[in-house]
Amino acid sequence: MAVLVWIAEGTWPACVDAARDHAPAGADVVLLHVTPVDVAGAAHGAFAGLLGRGHPERDPGTRLEHLAAASADQLLADAARRLGRPCTRQERTGRAEREVVAASAGADLLVLARDGDRTHLGPRSLGPAGRFVVDHAPCPVLLVWPETAPGSAAIPPPQPSPPPPPPRAPEHR
C-alpha cells in the first residue's frame, strides 16, 4: 500500500499522526511538501525589473529559494521524526494543489488536513487548495482536522422550506 501524506505548514502534525494511526505497518509512506514558486518568482521579477539588472548575485529571489528549500527540508525531517517509521521524503515546487494531485496518481491513500475555516463544520473548512485536491485526487482521501473538530453546535440551522407553489388554474382549450 502506498500512502501519500501532504505536509503543509501549520497542519502537518495531524496528517502525520493520521498516517501513523491508519496506514498499515508495511505501507510505503511518502511525505510530500510543496514549495510555492510565486514568492521567489515575484522577488526575481522585482529585482530584474526594478533593481538589479546586471547583478544576479544580488537577486533576493535566489536567497528566498534557498530559505524555502531549507525550511522544507526541516519540515520534512520533523514530519519523518514524528512518523517514527521508514518513509520517503519528497519536495516539489509549484502550485500546491496541482502538485499534490499529480503526486497522488500512484497512491492508494492520500492524507491531508482541512485548510480553510477550521472554526466551523462544513464546506468552508476546506480552502481552495484543499477543495481542489479532494475533488481531483485519483485515490481515496483521508481528510483530517488539524486540531479538535468543532462541535455539532457549529452546524448552521436548517433553512426553512420554501412555501409550496400556489395551485395552478385549470387550462381551457
Results as ranks from 00 to 15, higher is better:
residue 54 G to P: 09
residue 105 A to R: 12
residue 44 H to A: 04
residue 83 L to A: 09
residue 2 A to Y: 11
residue 170 P to H: 08
residue 137 A to K: 02
residue 73 D to G: 15
residue 88 T to A: 15
residue 126 L to W: 03
residue 133 V to E: 03
residue 4 L to G: 00
residue 8 A to C: 02
residue 68 A to L: 12
residue 137 A to Q: 01
residue 171 E to L: 13
residue 123 P to K: 06
residue 67 L to F: 13
residue 43 A to E: 14
residue 10 G to F: 04
residue 28 D to F: 04
residue 126 L to Q: 05
residue 5 V to G: 00
residue 3 V to I: 12
residue 105 A to I: 03
residue 50 L to Q: 09
residue 25 A to G: 05
residue 1 M to T: 11
residue 63 R to P: 00
residue 7 I to H: 01
residue 153 A to R: 07
residue 76 L to H: 04
residue 118 R to L: 07
residue 158 P to D: 10
residue 71 S to N: 12
residue 114 R to M: 13
residue 122 G to H: 08
residue 67 L to P: 01
residue 112 L to G: 00
residue 69 A to H: 08
residue 53 R to N: 10
residue 68 A to P: 00
residue 146 P to I: 05
residue 102 A to I: 06
residue 58 R to E: 08
residue 71 S to T: 14
residue 85 R to G: 09
residue 77 A to T: 10
residue 147 E to R: 15
residue 143 L to S: 03
residue 31 L to G: 00
residue 64 L to R: 05
residue 34 V to C: 09
residue 59 D to S: 09
residue 104 S to P: 02
residue 36 P to Y: 09
residue 79 A to D: 03
residue 172 H to R: 06
residue 53 R to K: 12
residue 9 E to R: 10
residue 94 G to R: 05
residue 42 A to T: 12
residue 169 A to K: 09
residue 157 P to C: 09
residue 48 A to Q: 14
residue 132 F to N: 00
residue 99 E to M: 13
residue 137 A to H: 00
residue 109 L to G: 03
residue 108 D to E: 15
residue 22 H to R: 13
residue 86 P to R: 10
residue 124 R to C: 07
residue 94 G to Q: 08
residue 31 L to T: 05
residue 57 E to R: 08
residue 71 S to V: 10
residue 37 V to Q: 11
residue 18 A to Q: 08
residue 131 R to I: 01
residue 165 P to K: 13
residue 121 L to Y: 07
residue 23 A to N: 01
residue 107 A to I: 03
residue 36 P to C: 07
residue 98 R to E: 15
residue 105 A to Y: 05
residue 84 G to N: 12
residue 94 G to T: 10
residue 5 V to L: 04
residue 10 G to N: 06
residue 136 H to E: 06
residue 158 P to E: 10
residue 125 S to I: 05
residue 133 V to R: 02
residue 88 T to E: 14
residue 118 R to Y: 03
residue 130 G to V: 02
residue 68 A to M: 11
residue 102 A to C: 04
residue 131 R to H: 10
residue 92 R to V: 08
residue 168 R to L: 11
residue 56 P to R: 12
residue 85 R to I: 03
residue 61 G to M: 08
residue 17 D to H: 12
residue 47 F to P: 01
residue 33 H to R: 06
residue 7 I to R: 00
residue 129 A to F: 01
residue 52 G to F: 14
residue 149 A to V: 10
residue 79 A to K: 02
residue 161 S to N: 11
residue 159 Q to S: 13
residue 160 P to F: 06
residue 145 W to L: 04
residue 20 R to N: 07
residue 165 P to E: 14
residue 45 G to R: 13
residue 79 A to M: 08
residue 154 A to H: 09
residue 42 A to P: 01
residue 161 S to W: 14
residue 156 P to T: 06
residue 92 R to Q: 15
residue 47 F to T: 05
residue 71 S to W: 13
residue 165 P to C: 10
residue 88 T to C: 11
residue 20 R to L: 10
residue 81 R to K: 14
residue 14 A to Y: 08
residue 12 W to V: 02
residue 103 A to I: 02
residue 149 A to K: 12
residue 133 V to D: 00
residue 118 R to S: 04
residue 35 T to A: 14
residue 88 T to N: 10
